[in-house]
Design a protein around this nucleic acid. Structure first.
Lengths: 203, 203
DNA sequence: GAATAAGGCAAACAAATGTTCGCTTTATTC
DNA sequence: GAATAAAGCGAACATTTGTTTGCCTTATTC
């Protein structure tokens, strides 16, 4: 997929912004207005080019059926090759699409304490949990044990079940028979913000 | 905003799935097909109700102009209160909306090595970088120094500029005059996946 | 400077999509 | 069981939106 021309980029930007702002893609006339083109034919011509170039996908003849190929996905740069511009194709390892991050039933648990720090899970991190009543041996998850909620590695063997911290300063917690014990969810992802800019939105 | 009826929920779900899958919202006839309704009037009636209920917003008379009010956002659970169901309102700290995670110009850099492990940044993590030619003192960023790209804490004082690892096993790297030096971006977020399920999509 | 490609215009047209009207069916409520 | 609301049908209609055709202007390339 080659690079779009300057004008094509303007089109893509407009389409993305419009979609972002309205929740649905612009019609050909919307685009024409936005980019100050009086003829729908001009817009269509550009859209055809963008289609050929693979920058958009269209449900042909279908109203407002523009789908951006460069989705809200974030490029992943792997090993950066010497001399190459950082964002060049050579360095591109893949994409993480926003869709990958969201499952309708997942939720974040705010991490408290550093009992998992050897796994790089720090105080204040956001742990994305997928609700599940069971968990595999060795997986990290959130558990409720006698009223306390905790994020730990789950281990089970002949001797029983254990919630294992990933930090030498903390003891392994055995799950006794008769304890109130429940798997809340399995850890899918950990996320940490480094700036004030990404504040949590309350609603 | 009261709760939608069961049928209304089905509509909302369909609209959300369709939009997710296609990148644009369904037409009235698309919905009719999807929910096995033969009359467009039936669909429109429901949409009108959903509008009144505030569950969707519509660009009236405009094709495929359905915008879902309930956007995709992930709930954040803070301290879990004893006895409470995990997902109860009492435990809800806020939401992280998908939009917050994505800025059109940001990109991920795959982390190599453990030189930043005291900040919980581990080998294989995804570091979300916001491109910037400059960076504040004390902030973490990605830098290119004499052809090498590295993620470090940036420090500058009377003695010069330094790239500081967050791990005692690694030396501080001074930036000498005449070095080829460039700020690639500022670290906004770190993300780590714990399962095979969230693989990177290559395209 | 001719050739070519990108970008643009206007107008007529076709297809997709939303709207309205009157009538039926199926719960749910009192 | 009557009354009411929710959900649905079909058909005609109005509007929005996408498509096509022919021609123009302006860079860019060779």
């Amino acid at each position: 997929m080659s690079e779009p021309t300057k004008r094509q980029k303007q089109f893509l930007d407009f389409i993305e912004e419009f979609t972002e702002a309205n929740g649905y893609s612009p019609s050909i006339r919307d685009i024409g207005e936005g980019l100050k083109l009086s003829s729908t034919a001009s817009v269509k011509k550009m859209l055809d080019r963008l289609s050929e170039g693979g920058f958009i996908r269209r449900a042909s003849s279908s109203a407002r059926g523009i789908e951006l190929t460069r989705k809200r996905s974030i490029p992943v740069i792997g090993r950066i090759k010497a001399g190459m511009p950082v964002m060049s194709e050579e360095n591109l390892e893949g994409y993480i699409s926003v869709k990958d991050l969201v499952r309708s039933d997942s939720f974040f648990l705010r991490v408290e304490g550093d009992s998992m720090k050897n796994k790089g899970i720090m105080d204040g991190d956001f742990a994305l949990l997928r609700p599940s009543p069971v968990i595999d041996n060795g997986k990290i998850g959130a558990f409720r044990l006698n009223g306390e909620v905790t994020l730990k590695t789950f281990r089970r063997n002949r001797e029983g079940m254990f919630l294992v911290p990933e930090n030498e300063d903390y003891p392994v917690i055995p799950v006794h028979e008769g304890d109130e014990f429940e798997v809340i969810g399995i850890l899918d992802m950990v996320l940490r913000f480094f700036k004030g800019q990404y504040d949590i939105k309350y609603s």
